[in-house]
Write a protein that binds this DNA or RNA. Sequence first.
RNA 1: UCCGGCGUAGCUCAGCGGCAGAGCGGGUGGCUGUUAACCACUAGGUCGUAGGUUCGAACCCUACCGCCGGAGCCA
Length: 453
Amino acid sequence: MQLSVKAALASASPHDAVLLSGWVRTRRDAKSFSFLELNDGSCLKGIQIVADAGIPGSDDLHKMTTGASIAVSGKLVPSQGSEQQWEVHASSLSLIGPADESYPLQKKGHSLEFLRSIAHLRPRSNLFGAVFRIRSRLTFAVHRFFQERGFVNVHTPLITASDCEGAGEMFRVTTLPQGANTPPEQDFFGRNAFLTVSGQLEAETFACALGKVYTFGPTFRAENSNTSRHAAEFWMIEPEVAFCDLAADMDLAEAHVKDMVRTVLSECREDIEFCNRFVDKELIARLTMVAETPFQRLTYEDAVAILKASSHPFEYPVEYGLNLQSEHERFLTEKHFKCPVTVYNYPKEIKPFYMRLNDDDRTVAAMDLLVPGIGELIGGSQREERLDVLLASMARHNVNPDDYWWYTDLRKYGSVPHAGYGMGFERLLMFVTGVGNIRDVIPFARTPGSAEF
RNA sequence: UCCGGCGUAGCUCAGCGGCAGAGCGGGUGGCUGUUAACCACUAGGUCGUAGGUUCGAACCCUACCGCCGGAGCCA
């Protein structure tokens, strides 16, 4: 019977004939037999293979070094060793693909920086195996969370012609030859085109038809930002809900974060425990707190008051009308409240044109959800649904309404209050694994000056 | 893009003006129901690149490249 290592380790009873295949992590030879640790990626742990000298295939044992791929058939039996419940007594071995002495992964730990330089091999390490199994499970959980609540998934375009969505520099998409000075009318789309920085505006059109929608896909930013929390290509989750105000939007965001955290705690336990042991010793305690504690919620104005009243020495000034800096956000969530915090109602001057103007005429219905260790995990808002107010806001932000005729149309035909937010999927992964660099939670990171693999 | 730090063996690092080093990993041999096994031996180097200072540079200076941390922008 062909078994994954995960299935073999979870077996309830011995088995006379099993077949496993995977990669050798380590081998220890005795005179008359060898121990092999076999890992196939199905789970964190490997299974111990006991191979007596002389069985079919044992002539190749010396080639079954760390990194080699092999197939093993034999019996699944209780282990005599104290560190595992089951092991396989091999009846035959088969070397599938050897790995010579240049194989770069050792049995012992490597730095994350080195593993980044061998991104094609790092999923074979314990940490990256765990991170990418969690990433997969969380991808599934995102869809489950929204589908269970009646949301419709929308595939918004990756190529867009809106050239100023207010979310940073964009990559241009063109088929024109390099250096050509051809007008955009002669380009592939008959105009300038770019990789999307957000599916929000398109998602709004679908929310104003299907009610509750979400997008979950890659987005692109051509910002030259060189930090551990930014990538040029990253995945974003963007729900958009019709007949929804900011309070309900914040409720959804909080439920969403809690659901993601509970998912990894219950469905990725072994991998999360590995992260807790080797990445961040506070991880499980923090995630448990997040799953169980209500999030704090306060206005931007109250947040500024708290920051001004604190004796904490901030590098940047705190003043109403200025953006909260990273150090301010982290003080609120890590030091002051010691739990996730949602800050809402920001001054209209520091937020984009599409956010709904509040009755005070000074603030917009925006919210940022801040979490310990990461800072901003979610940014969202109630959208401006009143055509005249939206047009005034566009004018204030120097946005040409003609470029957004389809967006303003939504306000002309059956306009409704609606709201949504964006959650960076990699930021979420950093938060639930404790991994400190975005390059280590995405399979092949694209950052300024770096697109190897 | 700005500020700071770091580039020495496959990996992690020490050496900081006078013979190029250690641990791990690799190879060879031994030993052992072992499990980051253990013991012995052994191979392995353009000290990031280019220039400069000096009798002499891995070490001091300059520029560039790369990486890391922080900041800005944001998710």
